Amino acid sequence: MKALVSKPHLLSRVATLALGKTIGGPAAEFTDVPEPTISPNEILVKVRAVALNPTDHMHIDVISPPGSTIGCDYAGEVAKVGGNAVKAWSVGDRVAGVVHGGLVPGRGAFAEYLKIDSDLAWKVPDDVDDAAAATFGVSAATAMLALNCRLGLPYPGEEQDIRRQQTAPAIFIYAGSTAAGLFTIQTAKLAGYTVVTTASPHSTDLVKSYGADAVFDYHDPDVATAITKQYPDISIAVDCFSKGKSFGISDEVLKNSKGKLITLLQPPKPKYPGVEHELILAYTLFGHAFQWLPPVGPKWPALPDDRKALARFYATLPQLVGSKKLRAPPVLLEEGGWNGILTGLDKLRAGKVSGGKIVVKL
Rank of each mutant, 00 (worst) to 15 (best):
Met1Ile: 12
Leu4Trp: 03
Leu10Phe: 11
Ser12Glu: 14
Thr16His: 10
Thr22Asn: 04
Ile23Ser: 00
Gly24Trp: 03
Gly24Met: 00
Ala27Cys: 01
Thr31Lys: 13
Val33Phe: 07
Glu35Gln: 14
Pro36Trp: 04
Pro40Lys: 09
Ile43Met: 04
Leu44Ala: 07
Val45Met: 01
Val50Asn: 00
Ala51Arg: 02
Asn53Ser: 11
Ser64Arg: 04
Ser64Gln: 12
Ser64Thr: 02
Pro65Gly: 07
Gly76Ile: 06
Glu77Arg: 00
Lys80Tyr: 10
Gly82Phe: 08
Gly83Asp: 12
Trp89Arg: 04
Val91Thr: 11
Val91Met: 08
Gly92Leu: 10
Gly97Asn: 05
Val99Thr: 15
Pro105Trp: 06
Gly108Lys: 00
Ala109Ser: 14
Phe110Lys: 05
Ala111Thr: 04
Asp119His: 08
Leu120Ile: 09
Trp122Gln: 12
Lys123Asn: 12
Val124Trp: 05
Asp126Ser: 15
Asp129Ser: 14
Ala132Asn: 11
Thr135Pro: 14
Val138Tyr: 03
Val138Thr: 12
Ala140Tyr: 14
Ala146Ile: 13
Ala146Trp: 06
Ala146His: 01
Asn148Cys: 15
Glu158Asn: 02
Gln165Val: 03
Gln166Arg: 13
Thr167Trp: 13
Ala168Asp: 13
Ile171Trp: 13
Ala175Gly: 15
Ile185Pro: 11
Thr187Gly: 05
Tyr193Ala: 02
Thr194Arg: 14
Val196Ser: 10
Ala199Phe: 03
Ser200Ile: 05
Asp205Val: 09
Ala212Val: 04
Asp213Asn: 13
Ala214Phe: 14
Pro221Glu: 14
Pro221Thr: 08
Asp222Lys: 10
Gln230Glu: 14
Asp233Ser: 13
Val238Lys: 01
Val238Ser: 06
Lys243Asn: 09
Lys243Met: 15
Ser250Leu: 06
Val253Ala: 08
Val253Gly: 08
Val253Cys: 13
Leu254Asn: 09
Lys260Met: 13
Leu265Thr: 04
Leu265Pro: 10
Pro267Ser: 11
Lys269Asp: 07
Glu276Val: 15
His277Phe: 12
Leu279Val: 07
Leu281Arg: 10
Tyr283Leu: 15
Thr284Ser: 14
Ala289Ile: 00
Gly297Met: 02
Lys299Trp: 01
Thr316Trp: 03
Leu317Arg: 01
Pro318Val: 15
Gly322Lys: 10
Gly322Thr: 03
Gly322Tyr: 05
Lys325Leu: 13
Leu326Arg: 04
Ala328Phe: 07
Trp338Cys: 02
Gly340Thr: 00
Ile341Val: 12
Ile341Gly: 00
Leu342Thr: 10
Asp346Met: 10
Val353Pro: 02
Ser354Pro: 02
Val359Gln: 00
